[in-house]
């Protein structure tokens, strides 16, 4: 039960949505865009999100695109995680998605919703960071494409009134060898401890992590350490871990020390996948 009331709009075009936001904002209604809308309910019911107007983008055709366009794959932000996964255009993304929430919830959670979520995990971001995907963002200046590694800094850096329309990924990048490991404290269900996704491009490992810090990230310095083959595998991992770019989470799901321990072992698994057991 949500304790606050809001107006509900379902525009049929990008322009209508952008204009609607501006109008509602001028009226002081603190509008919010939704696609899956799950966080509106889960955070709204505990008053962590309050809005006076909701703009549902699920009727905007551009947000529902899911197709190969030449050398690119285009994913509409309002497509559910289940649909994106089942399309199997992008194996690493499908693998990351299958570990998000649960199957029924993924019928409602959308790709754009996961990228823009408040929840810290946002695992769908990891494959996009690794493949240097592009995000198409709508706002008053029209539809503009940004490299995800520029516009995603801890969270998606959108200006007020902007919303994510599409994710665009080069097909070639999606065909690279990958590893995606989700670690939970126990069993196969429950909240994750951390997720590490890695791509191997011409022998160079790219790494993105979620659940370790309070935001998903890809860190070039950590990647440099992992790829520094002048060091032993153990030393590479230790150096990478020393370069974690923000405080490690220390919460009920796992202490910071435990998370680092799990990360070290996960990195070892990733390196072993491509380089054998090594000298760790």
């Amino acid at each position: 039960m949500l304790s606050f009331d809001f107006e509900y709009y379902k525009p049929a075009s990008i322009d209508e949505a952008v204009q609607l936001f501006q109008s509602l904002d001028r009226q002081g209604k603190n509008p919010s865009y939704i696609s899956g809308g799950t966080e509106l309910i889960t955070l709204g019911r505990v008053n962590k999100i309050v809005t006076g107007a909701v703009i549902d983008i699920k009727a905007i055709p551009e947000c529902l695109v899911l197709e190969k366009q030449g050398t690119q794959l285009v994913f509409g932000a309002a497509q559910s995680l289940t649909v994106v996964r089942e399309k199997q255009f992008f194996p690493l993304l499908s693998k990351a998605i299958v570990e998000i929430a649960d199957h029924t919830a993924r019928n409602k959670i959308t790709l754009g919703g996961n990228i823009c979520a408040n929840i810290i995990y946002r695992e769908a971001v990891l494959p996009l960071l690794l493949t240097d995907s592009t995000l198409a963002v709508a706002g008053l200046n029209g539809l503009i494409q940004y490299p995800i590694n520029d516009i995603f800094q801890q969270t998606l850096q959108l200006d007020r009134g902007e919303f994510l329309v599409q994710v665009i990924t080069h097909k070639q990048e999606t065909e690279l060898p990958f590893v995606c490991l989700k670690k939970r404290r126990q069993w196969d269900v429950g909240y994750p401890l951390l997720t590490a996704a890695a791509l191997n491009k011409n022998g160079q490992i790219k790494l993105a992590i979620s659940g370790l810090c309070s935001f998903p990230f890809r860190d070039k310095r950590m990647e440099y350490s992992l790829n520094n083959r002048s060091l032993s595998m153990k030393a590479r991992i230790e150096e990478a871990v020393s370069r974690i770019p923000a405080p490690v989470l220390n919460d009920v799901h796992g202490s910071a020390e435990y998370r680092v321990f799990v990360l070290e072992n996960t990195l070892q698994e990733i390196l072993a996948e491509w380089e054998g057991a090594g000298d760790a």
Binding site: G37, T38, I41, T42, T82, A101, D102, T104, A105, K108
Partner: peptide, 20 residues
């Protein structure tokens, strides 16, 4: 959206009706 007790079917897919 965690327990599934409220699951219904919407357009052929299971949905948690507390999340919609």
């Amino acid at each position: 959206g965690d327990c599934g007790a409220c699951t219904i079917i919407v357009d052929g897919d299971p949905m948690k009706s507390c999340l919609m």
